[in-house]
Simulated scan of single mutants.
Amino acid sequence: MEDANLTVGYVAERCGVKVSTLHFYEDKGLIRSWRNQGNQRRYKRDVLRRISVIKAAQKMGLALEDIKAAFLQLPNQRTPDKDDWAQLSATWRAQLDARIAYMQRLRDSLTGCIGCGCLSMAKCPLYNPDDILADDGVGPVILDRAKVPIK
Rank of each mutant, 00 (worst) to 15 (best):
K44F: 14
K44I: 10
K44H: 13
R45G: 06
R45D: 14
R45Y: 10
R45E: 14
D46R: 07
V47W: 06
V47Y: 05
V47M: 06
R49A: 15
R49C: 10
R49N: 12
R50N: 03
R50Q: 02
I51N: 03
I51L: 00
S52Q: 15
S52R: 15
S52N: 14
S52D: 15
V53N: 08
I54A: 00
I54H: 00
I54C: 02
I54E: 05
K55R: 10
A56H: 13
A56I: 10
A56E: 13
A56G: 09
A57E: 06
A57V: 01
A57M: 01
A57T: 05
Q58C: 02
Q58G: 03
K59R: 14
K59W: 11
K59V: 08
M60P: 00
M60Y: 10
M60F: 13
G61T: 04
G61V: 04
G61Q: 03
L62W: 07
L62V: 04
L62N: 02
L62M: 09
A63N: 13
A63S: 14
L64A: 02
L64K: 09
E65F: 03
E65P: 00
E65A: 13
E65I: 09
D66Y: 02
D66F: 08
D66A: 11
D66I: 02
I67Y: 01
A69M: 03
A69D: 04
A70H: 08
A70G: 10
F71S: 00
F71A: 01
L72S: 15
L72C: 11
L72K: 13
L74Y: 01
P75L: 04
P75W: 05
P75H: 04
P75Q: 05
N76H: 09
N76D: 14
N76C: 02
Q77C: 09
T79I: 05
T79A: 07
T79G: 04
P80C: 06
D81M: 04
D81E: 11
D81T: 09
D81N: 15
K82A: 14
K82Q: 15
K82D: 15
K82N: 12
K82E: 15
D83I: 09
D83L: 08
D84C: 06
D84F: 02
D84Y: 06
W85G: 04
W85V: 11
W85T: 11
W85A: 12
A86R: 15
A86Q: 15
Q87E: 12
Q87N: 12
L88I: 08
L88T: 01
L88A: 06
S89T: 14
S89V: 14
A90D: 10
A90K: 09
T91N: 12
T91H: 12
W92N: 05
R93N: 12
R93E: 12
A94I: 03
A94M: 08
A94E: 09
A94V: 00
Q95L: 01
Q95Y: 03
Q95C: 05
L96Q: 11
D97Q: 11
D97V: 02
A98Q: 14
R99C: 07
R99Y: 03
R99D: 09
R99V: 02
R99M: 05
I100Q: 09
I100C: 06
I100Y: 01
I100H: 07
A101K: 13
A101M: 07
Y102N: 11
Y102Q: 11
M103T: 10
M103N: 11
M103I: 09
M103D: 09
